[in-house]
Design a protein around this nucleic acid. Structure first.
Lengths: 245, 245
DNA sequence: CGCTCCCTTGACGACTTTCAATGATCGTGG
DNA sequence: CCACGATCATTGAAAGTCGTCAAGGGAGCG
């Protein structure tokens, strides 16, 4: 048990070698996408020879945008430099997502994207983004992302730490399910500090609340391997964990 | 002094009557937009005879999306019904913004849009959204909104109440400036409870922190009329008001 | 005038951050 | 193979912030 990872799983991704050739499959894109423009989208993608190794940078904050990317296998984190010199984790990216949706002005990258583990990336040149077919896909993808982002803002703004954690794990679980993976167990590719930074809390708080959830048998974990024996309980916590309306 | 409103000001908007005819002006859209497709966008917009009165609903959560809208004069709030029956303010909309950017799947409205004051609305039929010219505009607008939303999420997730308030007022100030209005004074169209709900805190906290900022001479206010004598101080508070990285 | 909605203030308790210290894990180089 | 350092995870105690409950004031409106 406990062997599947959020980011890499043989049930969804073909082997890394095959991914390197980047034959663009439907499952590589959100299920919502209609099939008509998929061919256009697929042809727009170019292959890549070697994986991005853990810790390597895909795109750096401030650099000029040369292309958009999609993640085929692996996991990324988006990091932003705050004005005071600190770093914040702005988000995570898992297979099937397009990277750079907030940068279509073709100007500069607003965040730095770093591989959390060895990842296979596909490249979407800007020239293809100009095509109407691809643009149609983009409108769909961006607005979808925007809607989720609205929800996350509400969640993070009003929830206690345990509520944020529950929502975070629930989101991971739903993501897994959408990709046809087990909804109740996964291995996190990121550290507690990354999660804490993303959720806007201290890593000690993440640890304490995770321990508490463990004690209550809502989750089980050894290191970064998590099992969720009771998804409904997690759902209840995520819904009730709100304070201050 | 203190007479201009965030939402309505003669310096930017023509008179309501003229707005009712909805001659679509450049200043009605974000400055970033290139001019080439503006004609298409403009022709896509249809006029409206009477204003939306304060408290009236523009679109209701769950209803089928029939059209997108732009706000010409006035102010709206986006409200969402939470699963437990409560209401949360999900956002505010001021003149120059397109309403429905997260609903282009043409499915249903994810939130209810309510007028905070008498507002003039323009309608963008879905048929025009299907055109390539309009879609080009949409990609630009949505991704812009998405980038802002990312920033807001970081802000709200990690800031104390005073930091959130400072950021909120700063955002209002910047919005005013972008529209060529005074950056240092405005009248809020929404209640403290609305702001509190939006920021994910209690209205008592909003009140207390606003009083405190007043005492420190960072802001001045009588009722909902605000003056910001020291924008730099506000900026410092908004940058330092973060907790928990 | 009385009602409703909005704003304000106080006191208390719950939750989180902060500071500090220790243990665990892992990759690297001796 | 083991020692070492670095990163990550864990736990405790103290202080600060914010939510919660309660109460009262003020403005607008029928």
């Amino acid at each position: 048990m406990l062997q599947s990872t959020v980011s890499a799983n043989t049930a969804v991704a073909t082997s890394p070698t095959q991914c390197g050739t980047c034959t663009f499959k439907l499952r590589c894109l959100p299920a919502l996408l209609g099939g008509e423009d998929l061919g256009t989208f697929e042809r727009a993608v170019s292959r890549q020879r070697r994986p991005l190794h853990a810790g390597e940078v895909l795109a750096r904050q401030g650099d000029t945008v040369q292309a958009l990317y999609t993640l085929r296998v692996g996991a990324l984190k988006a990091v932003i430099q705050t004005p005071d010199g600190n770093e914040r984790v702005a988000g995570f990216r898992f297979p099937g997502t397009v990277i750079g949706l907030a940068e279509p002005e073709l100007s500069y990258w607003a965040r730095t994207f770093i591989a959390l583990e060895d990842s296979w990336i596909c490249r979407i040149p800007l020239t293809s983004v100009a095509s109407d077919g691809v643009r149609r896909q983009l409108v769909s993808l961006i607005s979808q992302r925007l809607r989720r982002e609205y929800d996350w803002r509400l969640t993070l703004a009003s929830m206690t730490v345990v509520g944020r954690l529950a929502s975070f794990f629930l989101a991971l679980s739903e993501y897994q399910q959408e990709r046809g993976l087990a909804a109740d167990h996964f291995t996190l590719p990121m550290t507690y500090s990354d999660i804490a930074s993303y959720l806007g809390v201290r890593h000690e708080s993440v640890c304490r609340n995770l321990t508490e959830l463990s004690r209550r048998r809502v989750i089980e974990h050894q290191g970064r391997r998590f099992v969720i024996p009771n998804l409904d309980a997690l759902r209840r916590i995520s819904e009730q964990g709100a304070v201050g309306r």
